[in-house]
Amino acid sequence: MSADEMLKELLNIQDIVFTIKKFTPAGIVIEVETEEMILAVKGTSSTAGWITTRVHNKSIAIEPYYPPSVIVLKGTTIYHVSDSRNRWEIMRCGLKPTGGGNTSLNRTYPERLHLAQNLSAAFEFIYFQTRPNGSLRPRIVDKLDLYEVTVPEGYTFYQDSHFQGGIWTETTISTAAVRRIDVREWRPHYDYLYPPPDLEKTLSSLMVNVP
């Protein structure tokens, strides 16, 4: 069911009142007035083959089980961000889809392997994960690993409804296609785009004191 059709289904729920916060082919976020309305949205979307990925206060995010697919050609370089404590498992077994429910976005979803289509998107995701006011549970940049993935043949990818430049697949990517990027390769570029708080203050101070 398309997003337009799903929205019509939501409008048909008896006595529902909601505000649309986000509307894309890959997902819908609305704000309702009561807990009963949240339950009604969950039921209606589930019947239509959509899943609820986040409920926060009276805001609910839903998306099709399979959002629009994204064409990623064999040999394309994409990226994955993971906690450094997963390093040994990734280098031994590859990148595996995992279920959601305890993420920085507080999302719940079936088993998926989340990736970034380019380095800029990967850096933006790292920034979201680590900025104090962005993530619900801020993480530390030094404890994150960045992986380069060379897309094998025969993989299907789908658009991530919550992350611009994000995609996901249901298929494990073997170690042969995965390389952990040394932090010395990517961290200077990341710090240039997203200066650490202390460096940002220093740079601002220098700019103010320029004669």
Rank of each mutant, 00 (worst) to 15 (best):
M91H: 05
I90T: 05
G99M: 07
C93N: 14
T98V: 13
L73N: 09
K74L: 08
N86Y: 15
G100S: 08
K96H: 10
G101W: 14
E89L: 11
T76R: 09
W88D: 13
L95A: 02
M91T: 11
G100M: 10
G100F: 04
V70F: 00
G94E: 10
M91L: 12
R87E: 12
S84D: 09
G94F: 12
C93W: 11
H80G: 10
E89A: 15
L105T: 10
K96I: 15
I71H: 09
T76C: 08
R87I: 10
K74M: 06
S104L: 08
G75D: 06
T103C: 07
C93Y: 12
R92D: 13
S104V: 11
T103M: 03
G100Y: 14
T76L: 04
L73E: 06
N102T: 03
T77G: 00
I90S: 01
N86I: 01
D83G: 08
I71F: 08
Y79A: 01
L105S: 12
K96P: 00
N86F: 14
W88Q: 15
S104C: 14
G94M: 14
I71Y: 06
G94K: 13
G75A: 11
S82M: 03
G100V: 07
P97S: 11
S84P: 02
R87L: 13
I78S: 06
R92A: 12
M91I: 15
K74Q: 14
L95G: 10
I78G: 03
I78K: 03
V72I: 07
G100H: 02
P97K: 04
L105A: 06
C93L: 12
R85W: 06
I78H: 04
W88L: 13
S84C: 13
Y79T: 02
S104P: 00
V81W: 04
L73I: 07
Y79V: 09
L105R: 13
I90E: 05
T77R: 11
D83I: 09
S69A: 03
L95D: 06
S82L: 05
D83P: 00
C93Q: 14
Y79G: 01
R92Q: 15
R92Y: 04
T98I: 12
G94S: 14
N102W: 02
T76D: 05
N86T: 14
Y79L: 06
K74I: 00
D83Y: 04
T98D: 05
T77P: 01
K74R: 11
V72M: 01
P97C: 10
W88N: 11
G100E: 11
G75M: 08
T77H: 04
V72S: 03
S104M: 09
M91P: 01
C93P: 00
S82H: 02
P68C: 00
L73Q: 07
P97A: 11
V72P: 00
H80T: 13
R85K: 15
G100D: 05
E89R: 14
N86H: 15
P97D: 09
Y79S: 01
D83N: 12
I90P: 03
P68T: 05
K74C: 04
Y79H: 02
G100I: 06
T98P: 00
T103F: 07
I78V: 12
G75N: 09
S84M: 08
L73T: 02
I78M: 03
P68W: 02
S69H: 04
V70L: 05
G100Q: 08
D83C: 06
R85I: 14
P97N: 06
L105N: 09
G94H: 12
R85V: 15
V72G: 02
P97I: 01
S69Y: 08
I78L: 09
T103I: 03
S82D: 12
